[in-house]
């Protein structure tokens, strides 16, 4: 109290009663509660150590709880990619396995499983744009927001709007919910809000983690598949378009929108070209990277023309698109 002569209000009196009751009837923090805290701390450190050993043994040595490998014996990023299934080309797999045996003098661990995560993936290469955006698991819920708000007019809502609103709401919560009642059974609104938030966070984290591997593209005509843009969109490692978009049932359902009926949006080739070069020039708030400098001018035009046939396959025979 800055002014001792001012009478206490109800909340201040209640807090004084709490202080008095804690002083008279409470338990000493030291050593009672510090002991409980220490036990919890040791358990938590134990969990972290266990995760570390499981991670290194599986991804590094190829066998759960085996931590005996080091130096050249540790699986490389490329070898770990074979185990995770990231590399699925048979010839490449055989080459990697033979290389492992030659380097280490051991058989490739055929039954290895990487349940947690690889030690690392291939070195980042900003120039060649091998694009595979996977955030750390605790950002999956934000990642999934991009899927939900993938419509161009709503992108800004998913990227900035909702996360900012959530943070402001959390900060302001003590001033929004000012009753003195603390029993959960008598705070139905607050408890419902919490349970809904928890369910949404958990399910978004789960759904964000589910954006799986690229399968076969279906529903395209032979003329569409023959277009130069098809290879660039579906198979080109610089583009990795299907890491974020779906085309004909293949690819990931986010963070970018499904492109299977892109032509029906009537955006036109020029719009597509400008968008590919600099996405934010056409869709403010877009998280998509710019492809100018990644693809050549001709390649960008080819991708734009291919996109403008999706949902309108008859265009693939039209010289304006096919050339």
């Amino acid at each position: 109290m800055t002014d001792p002569s001012k009478p206490l209000n109800d909340r201040q009196r209640a807090f004084l009663r709490y202080k008095q009751a804690t002083k008279e009837h409470g338990r000493p923090f030291f050593p009672h509660e510090t002991f409980t805290d220490t036990v919890v701390g040791v358990v938590v450190v134990g969990i972290i150590l266990t995760l570390t050993v499981a991670w290194y043994s599986m991804a590094g040595c190829g066998q759960l709880w085996d931590i005996s490998c080091s130096g050249d014996q540790v699986l490389t990023a490329h070898e770990q990619a074979v185990i995770t299934g990231e590399i699925d080309d048979e010839a490449e797999i055989s080459k990697v396995k033979a290389g492992f045996t030659e380097r280490t003098g051991r058989e490739f661990p055929e039954d290895a499983r990487i349940v947690l995560e690889p030690l690392y993936e291939e070195k980042a290469d900003p120039a060649t744009t091998k694009y595979h955006p996977r955030p750390e698991w605790y950002f999956y819920f934000l990642f999934y927001l991009l899927v939900i708000f993938s419509s161009p007019s709503l992108v800004l809502m998913g990227t900035i709007g909702v996360p900012t609103l959530m943070l402001v709401l959390l900060l302001a919560w003590p001033f929004l919910d000012r009753s003195r009642e603390r029993r959960p059974s008598r705070r139905p609104l607050a408890m419902t809000a919490m349970v809904v938030t928890a369910v949404v966070l958990l399910s978004f984290t789960w759904l964000g983690a589910q954006s799986g591997k690229v399968g076969g593209v279906e529903g395209l005509t032979d003329e569409q598949v023959a277009m130069p843009g098809y290879e660039l969109v579906v198979n080109d490692s610089r583009g990795q378009c299907l890491a974020c978009h779906m085309v004909g049932g293949a690819g990931n359902s986010g963070p970018g929108p499904d492109l299977s009926e892109e032509a029906l949006l009537n955006r036109g080739i020029e719009w597509q070209i400008e968008h590919l070069k600099q996405p934010t020039s056409q869709i403010p708030g877009s998280g998509m990277p710019a492809y100018e400098g990644v693809f050549s001018e001709e390649e960008i035009e080819a991708v734009a023309k291919f996109l403008e046939t999706l949902g309108m396959p008859e265009r693939a025979t039209d010289p304006e698109y096919a050339s």
């Binding site: 990023a77 690392y120 993936e121 291939e122 070195k123 980042a124 290469d125 900003p126 744009t129 091998k130 694009y131 595979h132 955006p133 996977r134 955030p135 750390e136 950002f139 991009l146 992108v155 800004l156 990227t159 900035i160 963070p255 934010t280 403010p284 708030g285 877009s286 998280g287 998509m288 990277p289």
Partner: peptide, 22 residues
């Protein structure tokens, strides 16, 4: 996350930074 400097981290960060940039 970025400091590991593998492809996954780099491109996730590019998307993350682009989002901040909006």
């Amino acid at each position: 996350y970025l400091l590991v400097w593998d492809n996954r981290a780099f491109w996730a960060t590019v998307v993350g930074i682009n989002i901040n940039g909006t």
